[in-house]
Each structure stands twice: as C-alpha cells, then as structure tokens.
Simulated scan of single mutants.
Amino acid sequence: MSARSDERRRLPVVIGALVLVLVALAAVILTRGGDGDGVARQAATCDRLGGKITGSSDARGYCDVPRAPGTVETVVLRGDGGLDVGDLRRRRAACAADPDRVRRTALVRARTRTVDSYVALSWRAPGVCRGRETRVTGAERVRFRQARLLDRARVALTAGRADDALADARAADDLASTTATRASVSRARRAVRRTSGPGSGSSGTQLVSPAEYLGLSCAEIGHAFRVAPGADPPHDPDGDGQACVGQ
C-alpha cells in the first residue's frame, strides 16, 4: 500500500514537469515562428517597394529602394512588415524639399555648361521618394542661360572688362528682362562710362564724333565705337554711348 501511495504522490509531480517542458517548448517554437513570420513580412514589403533587404530582425528591418540612377533610399520597416512612422515622416519631408534643391543645383551647373535635364523627385505610395529624368523646359532654359550670362558679366566687370560685361548683361536682358538683368546692365554701363569718359586714361575705344560716321550703317562701319551718351541715335539707339554693339 505504501508503494502505491508513493506512486500516486509522484504522479502529479511528473505530470507538472511534463507540462512545464511542453510549455517551454511551445514558447520556443512560437518565438522562432514569430521571428520567421516577421522577417518574411518585411521581405514581402521590401519586394513590393522594389527594393532589397539589407538587415532584418524581430524589431526592425531595413530596405534599400532605388531612388534615382545611382542612388537608393533606405526605408525602415517595423517587425510586422509595416513602414516605420517616424522614418516615413522624415523621408517624406526630405522628398518635398529635394525638388527645390535639385533645381538650384541645376542652376549652378548651368553657369558653366549646358543643362538639358535633371532628376525630379516626387513622393509615391506606399511611402518612397522616386526620381525621374526631367527635360529642362523653355522657361528654365532661359533662366539657366541668364544665370550663365550674368555670372560672366560679373567676372568681366571684376576684371575691368566693362565692354564685355555690358555685352553679356545685355544678352541676359534680351532673353527676358528682370530686375537682376537690368541691374547688371546699369552697373556695366556705369563702368563703361568711367573707363571711356574724358580724362579716364583708358586705352580702349576712343570717343568719336557722330559726324565721323554720318550716313553709314553699323554694318558698313564694321566695328564698335564710343560716342557721347545720347549724341548718336542712329548708331546708339539706347543712348548709353556704346555704338553699333550687337549689329
């Protein structure tokens, strides 16, 4: 009787131990299964974005998505495969600001070379910033060309080449007259008058009398020359003293 009593007392203990072992095994299996499911969901989300997983864990994943030629955008994923809210907000704000930065960069590039296109960025569902090649419009091309001419005019003015500065400033103003182009023309005109006026000591084009070219067109004269401002409308229509320029 005592042996049977001992067996009966040990039986609950054995059953309890088995239950604990089974619970522990279930927890391990579920945890591992959860990790696998999370990684799989992150990979599926990254695949929908057209990207590539670069890191993944139960808590967070990282997906590199093509943004523009040669560049990628790193998207942060939650453990359940969704997009991280904080990262989404930061990337969207950066994408909204990028178009202005890209256009400014194109303007700077246009001062030294011709720019026909640039990468325009825009926000796309479900939450990535995409770039596409965009052709420069006619209005932008004018602005780019003006920027180059105005930059050249500033350089020429600094170097003491007032006539060259005036020619570039006028060319920019001819494309589309703006406050900046008109100011550039005025600065260049003042510099020309200072270097070509009486007592300036300039060795450049000398001031001549309109009577010297009376009845001749600029094409017939064949060169530029200086006259007193406003003294020779046929050869100097705008009265700045620079005759026959651009003809």
Rank of each mutant, 00 (worst) to 15 (best):
R135I: 00
V136N: 05
T137D: 04
A139K: 10
A139F: 03
E140H: 02
E140W: 05
E140S: 02
V142A: 13
F144Q: 08
F144S: 06
L149H: 02
D151R: 11
R152A: 15
R154W: 00
R154K: 13
V155G: 11
V155T: 14
V155M: 13
A156V: 08
T158C: 01
R161Q: 12
D163I: 03
D163E: 11
D164W: 06
D164Q: 11
L166N: 00
A167Q: 03
A167I: 10
D168F: 10
A169H: 03
A169P: 01
R170Q: 13
A172Y: 02
A176R: 15
A176L: 07
S177I: 03
S177Y: 00
T178H: 05
T179M: 07
A180W: 02
T181K: 03
R182Q: 09
R182M: 04
A183I: 06
S184I: 01
S184T: 02
V185M: 07
S186Y: 13
S186C: 02
A188P: 00
A188D: 09
A191N: 06
R194G: 07
R194I: 09
R194E: 14
R194F: 04
G197N: 05
P198I: 02
G199L: 15
G201H: 01
G201W: 01
S202I: 04
T205H: 14
T205I: 12
S209N: 13
S209Y: 01
Y213F: 15
Y213E: 07
Y213G: 05
L216T: 12
C218W: 06
H223V: 04
A224C: 11
F225S: 04
R226T: 05
V227I: 12
P229C: 04
D232I: 07
D232K: 03
D232F: 04
P233N: 09
P233S: 09
P234F: 10
H235N: 13
H235G: 02
D236E: 06
D238E: 11
D238A: 10
D238V: 07
D238R: 08
D238T: 12
D240S: 08
G241E: 10
G241P: 11
G241D: 13
A243F: 09
C244E: 10
